[in-house]
Amino acid sequence: MIPLSGDLGNAKGIVRETLGSFETRRGTSTLKRGFAHMLKNGVVMDVTTVEQAQIAEDAGAVAVMVLDKLPADVRKAGGVARTASIRVIEEIMDSVTIPVMAKCRIGHVYEARVLGETDVDMIDESEVLTPADEFHHIWKWDFTTPFVNGARNLGEALRRIEEGAAMIRTKGEPGTGNVAEAVIHIKNVNTELRRIKSIYDAGDEQDLVSVARDLKVSYSLVEETASLGRLPVVNFAAGGISTPADAAYLMTLGCDGVFVGSGIFKSDDAKERAQAVVLATTFWEDPDKVKEAQKMVDERQSMLGLDTKNLELRMQERGSTA
C-alpha cells in the first residue's frame, strides 16, 4: 500500500473550514495522493476538444488531460507551447463526469494558479509545454489542487515529490508514438529503487545518506522510499504509447496506470483504439484479452511515429536537472 500521509502538515494548500457542524480540511496529502490512488489501473487520455473528451469517457478513460494541441502537434508547430484555453477546459469539465486535468508550464506558478481557480481536478506540470523556469519547479504544497509531475529517474521523481507532487508519471518522449523512452525510464526508476531497497535492507544508513546527497533530496524521503521499495506516490507511465500492447507492456513493468497522449487521437481509429487501450490496461495480466484488444486496432491506422534518436526537440530533458 502506498502511504498517504506525506510531509508538510502545515502546507499553505491546506484549507480548514467549518461546514455546518463539521470541521473539515481540504488539500491535505491524504486527499491529494488519495485522488491519484483512485486512478490506479486506469488510462488518462490527452484530449483537445469536447468530442474527444466524450469519446475518452465512453471508452473507459479514468480521466482526461486537456491540451491546446496534442504533443505530436506541439512538436510540429514549434514556438512556445502554453496551457490550454480556459474556455475549452471549462466546456470539457461541464460535459464529462470523469476527472479533468490540464497542463501548465514547468515553473509557471501563475498558469497553475489559473488552473487551480478553474477547478481542474489535477494539474500536470509538464515538459510537453515550454518551461517557464528551467531551474525551479512549482512549490506544489502551496496548492489545494493536486499535481502530477514527470520524471526520468528516481532523483527527479523524489525531488518532485518533495516539492509536493501527489503523483508521478515516468516520462517518455511525448508525441513520438514511440514507447522506447518510456520503457527506458520506468526501468531506470525500478533499477534505482531495487538498489536503495537493498541498501535499506542491509541497514547501511551511511550509504543511504550518500544516496540522498546524490539525488539532492532529504534523507527521510529516501529512507521512506527505500523501505517501501517503490515510489511513495502513484506512478503512471507516459510518452509514446500508441497501441494496446504498448500499454499492457508498461503495466508489466510495474506502473500503476498509463497516460496516452497523441497515440489515440492522432490515429485514424481513435474510438476503437481508446477502448482497446483501456481493455489492455485493465486485463494486462491476461495475454488472450490483450490480444483481443490489439485485434480491435488496425496497425495501418496507428500514428506513424518518430525515431527518438534524431529528434531536434527532446521534451523529456526539460527541467530534469532541477
Binding site: 473550514e17 461546514l19 463539521f22 470541521e23 473539515t24 480540511r25 481540504r26 488539500g27 491535505t28 491524504t30 486527499l31 488519495g34 485522488f35 469539465m93 476527472p99 487551480g116 477547478d119 481542474v120 481536478d121 489535477m122 489545494t144 489542487t145 493536486p146
Partner: peptide
C-alpha cells in the same frame, strides 16, 4: 464539487 472541494472530516 470537484477535487479541490474534496475534504476530510470526523
Amino acid at each position: 464539487g470537484r477535487q479541490k472541494d474534496s475534504f476530510e472530516a470526523d
